[in-house]
Amino acid sequence: MVVAEAVVILLAVYALLGLLFAVAFVTCGVQRLDPAARPAPWGFRLLILPGSAALWPLLLLRWWGSTKGGASS
C-alpha cells in the first residue's frame, strides 16, 4: 500500500512537472532544438505537447545542451 501510494504520488509529480515543462517547450524550446520547427503552426505545437510532457527529462537535457552550444558558438 505504501509502495503503491509512493508510485502514484511520483507519477503525479512527474506528470505535473511534465505538463509545465511541455507548455514552455512547445512555445519556445522546440525551435531551438529543431530549426525546422521555427515557423511551425499551433496545431503542430499542440500535437507534440503530450509527448513533450511524457519525455520531459530527455528534452530538458537536449534543450539545455542546445542553449549551451548556442552560447559558445
Partner: peptide, 16 residues
C-alpha cells in the same frame, strides 16, 4: 500505446 501515439509525429522521429 500512449507513448507511441504521442511520439508518432515526424518531429519525434527526427529529434529522438
Amino acid at each position: 500505446l500512449f507513448l507511441m501515439a504521442a511520439t508518432s509525429h515526424d518531429f519525434w522521429n527526427r529529434n529522438l
